[in-house]
């Protein structure tokens, strides 16, 4: 339950925060949320992975849908012939890996402080 709430928090906060800050704003968001919630490192990684992955994937999916997939098809071809739709999960994966690592760092950092 804590996992689900955390990943939703990461997702929603980063969705809004990254429209204000630089493109990697979701990473410190995942870091901070995971640190505050004090998840176990493994769970934290999962929360960041899914949370930011969803935030990126959903945003990309909406953009792709509203654009009828015109642009993603062209970018896919530019990137060596990937089908356009596949860029949505690829985008999600970029977000997921970054979010997972961010949350993992946040949680491990907090653990370090608490354990002291």
């Amino acid at each position: 339950m804590k996992l689900i709430l955390t990943l939703i928090t990461i997702g929603i906060l980063s969705y809004f925060a990254q429209s204000l800050g630089p493109w990697w704003t979701g990473v410190p968001v995942a870091f901070l949320v995971a640190a505050i919630v004090q998840l176990k490192p493994g769970t934290a990684f999962l929360a960041g992975f899914i949370g930011l992955g969803l935030a990126w994937g959903v945003a990309a999916g909406i953009a792709d849908f509203e654009n009828s997939g015109i642009l993603s098809a062209r970018i896919g071809e530019m990137l060596g012939g990937l089908p356009g739709w596949s860029l949505v999960p690829v985008t999600a994966l970029f977000g997921a890996v970054l979010g997972g690592l961010g949350a993992l760092s946040g949680a491990s950092g907090m653990k370090l402080i608490i354990d002291k």
Binding site: W23, A60, S72
Partner: peptide, 13 residues
């Protein structure tokens, strides 16, 4: 690839 800064922003409606 960032949906807030990258090419997705250019996917016009």
């Amino acid at each position: 690839f960032s949906p807030s800064h990258g090419f997705w922003v250019n996917a016009e409606k």
